[in-house]
């Protein structure tokens, strides 16, 4: 069985890969491209740990086929920081201890980034509903919500 040749853009870089029809974008990112920041918590779109942004839309990469990446522009957690300069959301997640085990963190950061792009000044309720597709079992979400609130304040001021 020959693979499907896919040309795409990931974090601004041109990337080409071969994949099988049934492989998900998450499989491709993790197993073919070595981008293991996106995690598989469920494989069914219920936990958000594999969140990436495709053409400006937040998606679960476990619910996208690798072949669908053709011609798209993909953002993953690996592209969030600018060199060694962390994104304000990354800084605030650290400052507020918005992570314990950290396995859900890449997904939360992508979802929070998507939220603040669309809504730079969200209420607590808007933050909570925007992040409802990302499960965290460690924190009870309190510090995550506070980190996003604080990052929004910082980003507005920037």
């Amino acid at each position: 069985m020959s693979g499907i040749a896919v040309s795409t853009t990931i974090n601004g870089d041109d990337v080409e890969f071969l994949c099988q029809a049934e492989e998900t974008l998450l499989d491709v990112l993790r197993d073919r491209l070595g981008l293991t920041g996106a995690k598989e918590g469920c494989g069914t779109g219920d936990c958000g740990a594999c969140s990436v942004i495709v053409d400006g839309r937040l998606v679960c990469s476990c619910l996208v086929l690798g072949a669908e990446a053709e011609g798209r522009s993909i953002e993953t957690i690996e592209g969030m920081a600018d060199g060694e300069k962390l994104h304000p959301l990354q800084e605030k997640f650290l400052e507020h201890a918005a992570l314990q085990c950290g396995v859900c963190t890449p997904g939360f950061l992508m979802a929070a980034k998507d939220l603040l792009t669309r809504n730079p000044d969200p209420t607590e309720e808007e933050i909570r509903f925007a992040l409802a597709g990302n499960l965290c079992r460690c924190t009870g979400y309190d510090k995550i919500v506070r980190a996003v609130q604080d990052a929004a304040t910082v980003m507005k001021g920037a």
Binding site: R30, L35, T36, G37, A38, K39, E40, T76, I77, E78, M80, A81, L86, Q90, F93, L94, L99, G102, V103, T105, P106, L109
Partner: peptide, 13 residues
Amino acid sequence: GVDKVTGRARYGA
């Protein structure tokens, strides 16, 4: 922390 917010931290899988 930095490894965990940048996706570099390595978990079981």
